[in-house]
Design a protein around this nucleic acid. Structure first.
Length: 432
RNA sequence: UCCUCGAUAGCUCAACGGUAGAGCAACCGGCUGUUAACCGGUAGGUUGUAGGUUCGAAUCCUACUCGGGGAGCCA
């Protein structure tokens, strides 16, 4: 017997009337005594296989034994079939059982989040979860492709850090051979050093926040793509950000059409996003809130409901820029035309998905940065190396951080960020 | 840390002070084009834990445990 070509399910439409091989797992089976339908998944899609008892009684008997999530290699002829989900169907000529599964815990019926979260290692096999993870993969790759096109260099930041970068948030503490250390909450300060070396750089990795946040927008461990560019001013920075987000959307629309369909995503909402993105100063955003009848004092930070209120006025993500100095990080550069605000901007996703980017221009003046570190009561020794960047050829520079999970949640139109990462770390849940 | 909701069969839920039940999954049987297939049958329970009220508690009360959603903080 000649060896058949191994074809991925997503490519089967290119093999009409050909006999090929598919390697995967049984997703579902329907049988009526004389005919059996086996739905096979291989990570790229679902394939319906059909077998008549009268054609191959031996194979039919074997098919009866195969249960949900058993691993199988199937061989047969591919043909177009409108009644089959996916449009193509395989007429079976051979079944090779790799492993018969034990009784599989996740049925095709509904389950609660608690049950599924405890079985995340199996939950990711379902069509919706697989679709989310494929979109995530596209988003991450699109980030890299876009930045490399713009001559950015990947410079990974450390995950173990000696001190709290920004001094504000709660960090996970670890024992570093007897010394106190922390899991990184941001690669930004290291990015600034790398940008002074390589010009335009980015890092891409996990970041950690130990705050007891328990909402659909928070994880204890999440992924950020943080870019930093020497000689980029505030305006250059915003242009880069909107270009990146737009590129990500177009790439996902191009590469993940089937996944977005599985996720039931309203694609028109994504297609409506256009350049340039709208911009609102913090002060204008406060006015928007007040005009909607909300009480809001200038100088306070926006809460999640405020962000939703602001972003629902637009089809595209919206930049909110020039926040009051005291509610932003110590390294933010003051606006030369208004000392009360800084050249920082957050990008708010539409449909209430909240902040997906935070960024801005950094302070490049040594004296000012020193006084800001003192004002924020930060340990000066820990920032000595950071101050060096202003001592040896300081230049204007800007950067930002993109939250991957929130971006994927928005693009896929799902409720909770925990489903956009293979193995989420949430408050009170460390397993699996 | 605070507010709020929840925990009953493997799963999703019902029973709301009076003998714990259904659908799905499992197991047995039937069915020639199924779409979370369908039809018949079998088996499956110390109602999260501890205490209290009551003739009687899954149901009412208290505490605890575990979890969901939200606030703050942030991406």
């Amino acid at each position: 017997m000649t060896k058949l070509e191994w074809v991925l399910i997503k490519n089967l439409k290119n093999y009409p009337e050909r006999e090929v091989e598919v390697k995967g797992w049984l997703y579902n089976k329907r049988s009526s005594g004389k005919i059996v339908f086996m739905i096979i998944r291989d990570g790229t899609g679902l394939l319906q296989c059909v077998l008549m008892k009268k054609d191959r009684p031996d194979l039919f008997e074997q098919a009866e034994k195969i249960n949900q999530e058993s691993s199988v290699i199937v061989r047969g002829t591919v043909r177009e079939e409108p009644r089959s989900p996916g449009g193509v169907e395989m007429q079976l000529t051979d079944i090779e059982i790799v492993n018969i599964a034990d009784n599989y815990p996740i049925s095709l019926k509904e389950h609660g989040v608690d049950f599924l979260a405890d079985r995340r290692h199996l939950w990711i096999r379902t069509p919706k979860q697989s679709a989310l993870l494929r979109v995530r993969s596209t988003v991450e790759q699109a980030c890299r492709d876009f930045l490399h096109q713009q001559d950015f260099v990947l410079a990974d930041a450390p995950i173990i850090t000696p001190a709290a970068c920004e001094g504000t948030t709660t960090l996970f503490e670890i024992d570093y051979h007897g010394e106190k250390a922390f899991l990184s909450q941001s690669g930004q300060l290291y990015n600034e050093a790398a940008a002074m070396a390589l010009g335009r750089i980015y890092c891409f990795g996990p970041t950690f926040r130990a705050e007891k946040s328990k909402t659909r927008r928070h994880l204890m461990e999440f992924w950020m793509m943080e870019a930093e560019a020497a000689y980029f001013d505030f305006e250059d920075n915003l242009k880069l950000q909107e270009g990146l987000i737009y590129f990500i959307i177009r790439t996902v629309l191009d590469k993940n059409k089937e996944d977005l369909k599985v996720l039931n995503r309203d694609i028109e909402k994504l297609e409506a996003v256009s350049l340039p993105f709208p911009r609102l100063s913090y002060t204008e955003a406060v006015e928007v809130l007040r005009n909607k009848g909300r009480e809001f004092e200038w100088g306070n930070d926006f809460g999640a409901p405020d962000e939703t209120e602001i972003s629902t006025n637009f089809n595209s993500p919206v930049f909110v820029h020039r926040y009051p100095t005291k509610i932003k990080a110590f390294y933010m550069k003051p606006d030369p035309s208004d000392g009360k605000v800084v050249l920082g901007a957050d990008l708010l996703a539409p449909e209430g998905y909240g902040e997906i980017i935070g960024g801005g221009q950094r302070i490049d003046d040594l004296t000012l940065l020193e006084s800001r570190i003192r004002e924020h009561n930060l340990p000066e020794e820990a920032f000595a190396w950071y101050l060096d960047l202003r001592r040896y050829g300081s230049v204007p520079h800007s950067g930002f951080g993109l939250g991957i999970e929130r971006t994927v949640a928005w693009l896929c139109g799902i409720e909770h960020v925990r489903e956009t990462i293979p193995f989420p770390r949430t408050l009170y849940r460390l397993y699996p």
